[in-house]
Design a protein around this nucleic acid. Sequence first.
DNA 1: AACAACCTCAACCGCATCAGA
DNA 2: GTCTGATGCGGTTGAGGTTGT
Length: 199
Amino acid sequence: MPMAPMSSQCTKKETNRGAWTAEEDQKLAQVIEIHGPKRWKSVAAKAGLNRCGKSCRLRWMNYLRPNIKRGNISAQEEDLILRLHKLLGNRWSLIAGRLPGRTDNEIKNYWNSHLSKKVKQKEKQSRGLVAEESRPQNTKVKEMDFVEKRSEEGTSKGDEDSKFSHIEDGLFDCSSEGPLNLEWMSKFLEMDEDWLEFA
DNA sequence: AACAACCTCAACCGCATCAGA
DNA sequence: GTCTGATGCGGTTGAGGTTGT
């Protein structure tokens, strides 16, 4: 699939662009099997691929990596994405990290094509329902308050990450536990509003 | 059948951050 | 401390597929 002009990092020489061929995939997978998924520039060179390292990394991460699930996002996964997005915002890589076999790109695409519409619709509906109740606070508002509170305390962009750090690094970090227990995560996320209230 | 409008998703871009020299 | 290249991330694009007229 031909794309726009070359990025600055791929201008040095003529590089292949657009859709990957099966042959390219095979070459890339072979080299990564031997050398591992690092030093992408040299991986591209070793594989004899006329691709920039960035492109190879993306292809590996989103398509060739082992244990990648493709398509058919289950209702449970969808629910999890919705909850995690409510909690973390557009931090796709973090959300993907909690969904074994799913990539940030896939989740981002799924969100943009399916869930964002669903959420908007839901919001519209609930807005209509709660209009009379004049209830000013929903979870999102609470979350924004929390972020604002933190920024008042002098948190910068770098510190913004730290507002999640106790979650990410502690009880929320499942990376070391092998395959994620989705049920457990869903249950945990049921606590998200309580957590935001607490924060 | 033909065309338009819409949808999906692989791939690219630009920027931020990290790591090593 | 600074520079530079590598890596990672979120946003965006556009080809190809699907659906509607």
